[in-house]
Design a binder for these strands. Sequence first.
DNA 1: TGTACATCAGTGAACGCGCGTTCACTGATGTAC
DNA 2: TGTACATCAGTGAACGCGCGTTCACTGATGTAC
Lengths: 188, 188
Amino acid sequence: MPYPIDHKHKTHARIVDRASRLFRKKGYLATGVDVLMGAAGLTRGGFYAHFRNKAALLAEALEHAFDESEANMMSRGLEGLTGDAWLRAASERYLSTTHRSLPEEGCAVPSLGAEVARAPASVRRVFTKRAEAMRDRIAERISGDRREATRLLARWVGAVLIARAVDDRALADEILDACREAPERAAR
Amino acid sequence: MPYPIDHKHKTHARIVDRASRLFRKKGYLATGVDVLMGAAGLTRGGFYAHFRNKAALLAEALEHAFDESEANMMSRGLEGLTGDAWLRAASERYLSTTHRSLPEEGCAVPSLGAEVARAPASVRRVFTKRAEAMRDRIAERISGDRREATRLLARWVGAVLIARAVDDRALADEILDACREAPERAAR
DNA sequence: TGTACATCAGTGAACGCGCGTTCACTGATGTAC
DNA sequence: TGTACATCAGTGAACGCGCGTTCACTGATGTAC
């Protein structure tokens, strides 16, 4: 057999990782197959030995993005926390200026949500599964209330989306800061 | 003088209106100049007699979209309402299944926010001005609290973005419904 | 241990196509006489 | 009232370019002898 057994698998994973970052940063449509392959140290032609087409890569890139961003923002270092303590810590991460200015390492929902809505069913199915799982993971941490978790996720996503689109650092900070406030406190 | 004096102005406005709808529905990058002009009953070549380039049209299309969607969802028929009554009515409109399934007539923030974040400064400046004005209009209706208005807008935007991306009607409805709940009630 | 071979991951030229933009022009119009 | 003219909104061919995808091939590798 030519090449080590896991060689192709490693290459595949490298393409998915680079794509996942480029899609979140530049957008799906705006990132061409040759740029993608170049970022993985390969050339255009090899792409179709790994993926049926570009949309199939988007589906895998979404899975990878959710894996990475859920771990980074909702779990790593937050293992012991629940309820309000977890909520404050997770909100601080999701609504941080770091997350605002580094979409390539962040949640795929604000960066790719609109493009996913216009993507083939295969892509939307992956997004659906992962977004729902993310919502449920939030619910688990805040006393199991899925409706409250839904509101929280929606607010996080909207805040990051708007903060990134806005061309005014102070306004962006103001938006993130306002949304960091817990619902409980917000209502007095 | 050739042609009625307002002829060019009317054509210009028609292009902006069609572009505003197509951009919201299909995305900015995904909508080509010839499709845009065709939708306005014209041909490709005339475009540059109206706009410096495609990004300049995006800026005008955003203004138009904000005008239209703010009127439709926050004002029309809601003139007498303030506080909780206005909040309930506006939330119902923004988080309606109609708004979810007709992005071409809806708010530009969930449909174009991510592309605006990657657009030239001229486009982002227009978006900033209009998004801030929208937030302030919400604040005026709910006792002047701009931070609360920011949270409300972020939640609305996130909810519609996610509900559109998700490939599951029931889940989409669940998301919109959960986000319809007023913050006050949400916190008990 | 050294060589010949079979495998297949990756190459790069080529496909047809649509992109944003430019430009020489056409032809519908209001005005002047 | 009817004709000639000047204006300029809109046309459509052309520009170079990058897109997603295909395919005949190359060459690095592990295995067999």
